[in-house]
Write a protein that binds this DNA or RNA. Structure first.
Length: 461
RNA sequence: UCCGGCUUAGCUCAGUCGGUAGAGCAGGUGGCUGUUAACCACCCUGUCGCAAGUUCGAGUCUUGCAGCCGGAGCCA
């Protein structure tokens, strides 16, 4: 029976016998004693294994190297050292798998860029172990939040009809023989009726439209799964495959949506803070000093709400010189969002009621006929983390908006049908899961919060 | 996709005015009675991203290409 390093480090008392398994993080050899720090990923800290020279295990321990996997057995006793409560006095040590000096993770600081190139090994570092534990805790917290409020977790399709989404470039899904078609067909000439699904299909860019259908039956639902964008985006905040959380609530308006989003962010952050104290302390110390402040902003501060019109006015009187001028009708640029969240409110900010021309067709038209009931939640450093809206539930208005945006009405027959039969006001939002993780951990590149990130030109591992 | 920067030892980096490459860590050897990414001493380590050009001479200057990073756009 093996004990997790985490359990041993949190032991209530000494143990006459304990067995630990893990990977050697460091091996410190002196004449009379060897110290091996072993980590099994169950927590940030490593277990100190002590082997005095009079033990038969001393020879094996002395030859261990950084990165080797091993099993150590002995007594768990109070440590005289300052940095840990318990340590394992090993009477027996076995090397499971050796790691020679070419093992890339030596006892030194490595750059995040270098670690990205060895994504198969970086989970064995402190930083990435912590990231992936927090990622797990956040996922669990999200499910718990919704489950406790009687939301139904729904599974929207990953393969989706191409025509209906429009949130971004899609990856094509096909069983047609591309080699054969290349050179034979000009663009637009491919006969999709011969394809597997008998139509153009791609990987989903959002489960929202389908989530609405289920919300208009089950009332409160959410999706939590992968999403794909084939955009050629090369930034620290974009990847081709990422995870989104998309709640959708019936009998609800934009105010309900905003209040759900705020409640949600507060709750999940608080749960991660409770479950991942050590990992978050590590991020605060080694990655981003402002992590505690960021967490406080999400859990304690009030979330400001401001209309787009007010935000534009605030930007205009700010006296800042922006690269892109601000005027009603223009989308807020990254520099504008940064000013709003980092200088004006210094915290999370919902911007609401955007001009209809810069937002999607399904967002509910306001009475002013000029803006829609949409909201973006902006946070310092990371920018947009949530995008949501009240959905247009009025059949005639929705049809007019589809026409206005030059979309094909027939493609949305099912989406329109639920407005035709028993329509109700409803709303929802999409949360960028990986971006929230960036905000919580303080890591500045989305590629460092995803185990094996996919970006243009990169699908290794 | 556009703009900018970077590319030197296994890793992190320095390299002056163009004069023939250096430090820390890792590795090796030895030392050290309990260490904390241990410490001390010694030793080893190079296609200076690739290709061409200028020059008596290029890590250094020029051009092209590639890769990476940052920013912008798109968005979550």
């Amino acid at each position: 029976m093996r004990a997790r390093v985490r359990d041993l480090l949190h032991s209530d008392g000494a143990r006459a016998h304990a067995r630990a398994m893990g990977w050697a993080r460091s091996v410190r050899v002196s004449k009379g004693v060897v110290f091996v720090a072993i980590n099994d990923g169950s927590c940030l800290d490593s277990l100190q294994v002590v082997v005095p020279a009079d033990q038969p295990a001393f020879e094996i321990a002395r030859r261990l190297t950084t990165g080797a996997s091993l099993v150590a057995e002995g007594a768990l006793v109070a440590s005289p050292g300052q940095q840990q409560q318990w340590e394992l006095h090993a009477t027996e040590i076995k090397t499971i798998g050796e790691a020679d000096s070419s093992y890339p993770l030596q006892n030194k600081r490595h750059s995040l860029e270098f670690l990205r190139s060895i994504a198969h090994l970086r989970p064995r570092t402190n930083t990435f172990g912590a990231v992936f534990r927090v990622r797990n805790a956040l996922s669990y917290a999200i499910h718990r939040f919704f489950q406790e409020r009687n939301f139904q977790w729904i599974h929207t399709p990953i393969i989706s009809g191409c025509d209906c989404e429009g949130a971004g470039e899609m990856f094509r899904v096909t069983t047609l023989d591309i080699e054969e078609l290349v050179g034979k067909c000009r663009p637009g000439e491919v006969d999709c009726s011969k394809d597997f699904f008998g139509r153009r299909t791609g990987l989903t860019v959002s489960g929202q439209l389908e989530a609405e259908l289920l919300a208009l039956a089950l009332s409160d639902v959410y999706t939590f799964g992968p999403t794909f964008r084939a955009e050629n985006s090369n930034t620290s905040r974009h990847v081709a495959e990422f995870w989104m959380v998309e709640p959708e609530i019936a009998f609800a308006d934009l105010a309900d949506d905003i209040s759900l989003a705020e409640d949600f962010l507060r709750s999940v952050t608080l749960e991660v803070m409770n479950r991942c104290e050590d990992d978050l302390a590590f991020f605060a110390k080694r990655v981003e000093k402002r992590v505690p402040e960021r967490l406080r902003l999400l859990t304690e501060s009030s979330y400001e709400v401001m209309t787009y019109r007010e935000a534009v006015a605030a930007l205009q009187r700010s006296g800042e010189s922006f690269e892109y001028p601000v005027h009603f009708g223009a989308d807020l640029q990254a520099e504008h969002e940064r000013y709003l969240t980092e200088k004006l409110t210094a915290g999370p900010l919902f911007v609401t009621d955007y001009p209809k021309n810069i937002k999607a067709f399904y967002m509910r038209l306001n009475d002013d006929d000029e803006t829609v009931a949409a909201t973006d939640l902006l946070v310092p450093q990371v920018g947009e983390i949530i995008g949501g809206s009240q959905r247009e539930e009025r059949l005639d208005v929705l049809e007019a908006r589809i026409a206005e945006q030059g979309l094909e009405r027939d493609d949305y027959w099912w989406y329109l049908d639920v407005r035709r039969y028993g329509t109700v006001p409803h709303a929802g939002f999409g949360l960028g899961f990986d971006r929230l993780l960036m905000y919580i951990t303080g890591l500045q590149n989305i590629r460092d919060v995803i185990p094996f990130p996919r970006t243009p030109g990169h699908a290794d591992f």
